[in-house]
Design a protein around this nucleic acid. Structure first.
Length: 506
RNA sequence: GGGCCUCUAGCUCAAUUGGCAGAGCAGCGGACUUUUAAUCCGCGGGUUGUCGGUUCGAGUCCGACGGGGCCUACCA
């Protein structure tokens, strides 16, 4: 914040090392101050949004060169300027991209004001204009100005309106990207509409939204590398959460029977077009439900969100159409693997047989993998990317989903699904394991891996196990990546769906 | 992590074999009362990512470092 009493006319324009266009704009700021005019006033007149005028008049099909008699004050960013001799054209744009033309004529504003306008206003400035709503001789809706004020002087030139910024500049200068590129503006609003719809669907099913800690003592709820930090007050090593799961289950144990959270999780891993260091997870748990009931909820969440943003039919990466309103496929992991390899395999298929099948299909295996891990690897390498239409892949070997409940019918399997759309894993669901003895065994096994140096293994969370011992109801649970959901609807990369993604310092 | 490509004016991009670093938009001065990336006349704007090397001479060739992108492997 600048000091209010600071001499505003201090010439700071003698900075020869600045790029020419920035120096020129600083000189214009100085000139405003020298005139006693604030380049950054507290407020400017504004009676209507540009959108208000567009909404009111666009449908009326006014004749060219007509006057409405309506006096308005509007504000917006100058994105186009045409300073001719006695008549200036300005195009203003407001935050959602709505544009409106302004005309300043010698006859209406006078010689002096027109000259001031030409000398002081640049593309990029935020401007207030007062005048009458008219149409130009070409029939374009415009404000015929009787007065104008600088709302905020811009010191840096905007990029070329007609050539897209390169990809790095779009992300590093997202604020500029938002000014110049409609897709960037739409992304912000699409994501907000998705969030709003998700919350409405949860609310309509009597789910309660909670907030749980980001700073955690132990690393749990998923297999991933955490970020580490330090809490000075307790002189305690802390982790940033990698999942929401354990705290939401604690809430459910306490009787928050239908619970969800939408929040940031953090994973200290590789970054690419589908992975960010911090990303938003949607997790939800439904007491007295199971993996089928939570699959229904998930489907409703996604369908409603798609409708909310008008993207119920999206183009897949292979060019085909995905209609999210059509019924979604349910198939078991072993059905899909059997289809892909051309012979029947199931939970009882021997490790040696699966190893042979993997070799035949050139799927590389790690030494020591068990039958379940090999089956999963075959699925991931041969099947997952081919599942374009929405598919719940169900019933995993117990060894690869340690936090899901044993299958009610098939020994060796657990009740878990992965939701695949457009060849990408969008979310996971479980019939949640709630036997605290088995839970302890599984977490101890994980913690031994962690102690042995596996950076992705979960640590033993004694408080979570204590909570489980107070009795968690049978429940269905799901987790889904918000950013990936938005990617599905928009076809954009993850760096476009996150407003300000992490970048290396310049 | 491995491989390939890339970094030049505010923005988007050129620059032949190693031989004066250019264009469009933007900016500055001038003309123009209906423009829509207007038109016309004139002008300015560069540490070619950084450091080093080869050379009479480097945007261009070589090396190192940094940023970015694509492919590839792993995680959502």
């Amino acid at each position: 914040m600048t000091e209010p009493r600071e001499n505003p006319a201090t010439p700071d324009s003698g900075q020869d090392d600045l790029p020419e266009q920035i120096r020129v704009r600083r000189e214009k700021r100085d000139r405003l101050l020298a005139e006693g005019v604030q380049p950054y006033p507290m407020s400017v007149p504004r009676t209507h949004l540009l959108k208000d005028l567009r909404t009111r008049y666009d449908g009326q099909e006014l004749e060219p060169d007509s006057k409405t008699g309506e006096q308005v004050a509007v504000a917006g960013r100058v994105i186009f300027l045409r300073n001719t001799g006695k008549l200036c054209f300005v195009r203003l744009r407001e935050g959602d991209g709505t544009e409106l033309q302004v005309m300043l004529s010698l006859a209406d504003v006078g010689e002096e004001e027109l000259a001031r306008f030409k000398a002081l206003v640049d593309i990029g400035d935020l401007l207030s204009v007062q005048g009458e709503v008219v149409t130009s001789r070409r029939g374009e809706l415009s404000v015929q100005a009787t007065g104008w004020q600088m709302a905020a002087k811009t010191l840096r030139p905007l990029p070329n309106e007609h050539k897209p910024l390169n990809e790095e500049a779009r992300v590093r200068l997202r604020y500029v990207d938002l000014i110049v590129r409609a897709e960037a503006r739409e992304m912000v609003r699409t994501k907000a509409a998705v969030l709003k719809s998700l919350r409405a669907t949860f609310d309509g099913n009597d789910f309660i939204e909670v907030e749980t800690p980001v700073l955690q003592l132990t690393n749990g709820g998923a297999a991933a590398r955490p970020f580490s930090t330090h809490l000075n007050a307790f002189d305690q090593q802390m982790k940033l959460r990698i999942a929401l799961e354990l705290d939401l289950k604690r809430a459910m144990i306490g009787g928050v029977d239908r619970v969800f959270e939408i929040g940031r999780t953090f994973r200290n891993e590789g970054l690419d077009s589908t992975h960010a260091a911090e990303f938003s997870m949607i997790e939800s748990y439904q007491a007295y439900g199971d993996y089928d009931s939570i699959a229904e909820l998930t489907e409703e969440l996604i369908r409603n969100a798609a409708r909310a943003v008008g993207r119920s039919v999206v183009t897949a990466r292979d060019g085909s159409q995905i209609d999210l309103d059509q019924p979604w496929r349910h198939a078991t992991l072993f059905e899909l693997v059997s289809e892909a390899v051309g012979e029947t395999v199931d939970a009882s298929t021997e490790t040696a047989r699966l190893t042979k099948i993997a070799e035949q299909h050139e799927v590389e295996l790690q030494p020591g993998w068990n039958a379940g891990e090999i089956a999963l690897e075959i699925y991931e390498k041969l099947v997952e990317h081919t599942l374009i239409q929405p598919t719940y892949v169900r019933d995993y070997p117990e060894s690869v989903r340690p936090l899901a409940k044993p299958h009610r019918e098939v020994p060796g399997l657990v009740e878990a699904w992965d939701l695949i759309i457009n060849g990408v894993e969008l979310g996971v669901g479980y019939s949640e394991l709630n036997d605290p003895v088995i839970q302890r065994d599984r977490l101890v096994a994980q913690s031994l891996l962690a102690a042995a140096g596996d950076p992705e293994a979960m640590e033993l969370d004694e408080d979570f196990l204590r909570a489980m011992e107070f009795g968690m109801p049978p429940a269905g649970g799901m987790g889904m990546g918000l950013d990936r959901l938005v990617m599905l609807f928009t076809g954009a990369g993850i760096r476009e769906t996150i407003l300000f993604p992490l970048l290396r310092p310049e």
